[in-house]
Simulated scan of single mutants.
Amino acid sequence: MLKEVCVENFTFVPEAIELGANRVELCDHLAVGGTTVSHGVAALTIQYCHRKNCRVMAIVRPRGGNFIYNKAEIEIMQQDITHLKQMGVDGVVIGCLKEDGWIDEETMLMLLDNAKGVDVTFHMAFDQINLELQFQAIDWLASRGVQRILTHGGPSHTLIENNLDRLRDYINFAGNRIIILPGGGITVQNLPLIVNTLNISEIHGTKILGELGSEKRGDHGDGSR
Rank of each mutant, 00 (worst) to 15 (best):
R61G: 05
F67H: 04
V7I: 11
I171Q: 12
L2Q: 09
H83A: 01
E15W: 02
S38V: 02
N70D: 15
N190P: 04
R51H: 09
C96I: 11
I179V: 15
V195T: 10
Y69E: 05
E106W: 09
A72D: 06
K116M: 13
R23Q: 10
N22Y: 00
I178D: 01
V7A: 01
D104A: 12
L193W: 06
H29W: 04
K52L: 01
H204F: 12
N53F: 10
N130C: 15
I178V: 11
W140F: 15
H83R: 14
A115R: 00
N196Y: 01
A72Y: 08
M77D: 06
E215W: 07
L167D: 04
K52E: 12
L111A: 08
P182K: 06
P14G: 06
I208H: 05
V120H: 11
R61T: 00
V60S: 08
A16E: 03
T121A: 03
M87W: 06
L141V: 04
G205H: 14
N130A: 13
L30P: 03
A16Y: 11
N53T: 00
V5D: 08
I94D: 01
D139V: 09
T45G: 08
Q128I: 07
I94F: 03
P182A: 06
G185A: 12
C96N: 12
I76G: 00
G64A: 13
R217A: 10
G145L: 14
K3F: 02
R148G: 07
L19W: 10
Q136S: 13
L30T: 04
L112C: 11
C54L: 00
P62W: 02
G145Q: 14
V56D: 07
Y48G: 05
R177D: 15
L150C: 08
D90S: 15
R51G: 02
I149C: 09
K52H: 04
A16I: 05
V146I: 13
G20S: 09
E215I: 12
G184Q: 13
A42P: 08
L141G: 05
G33M: 00
T197W: 08
E202Y: 06
H39C: 06
V146H: 11
N172P: 01
H152A: 04
I68N: 07
K116F: 13
N114C: 11
N70A: 04
I203V: 05
M77T: 02
G153W: 00
T36S: 13
C49K: 00
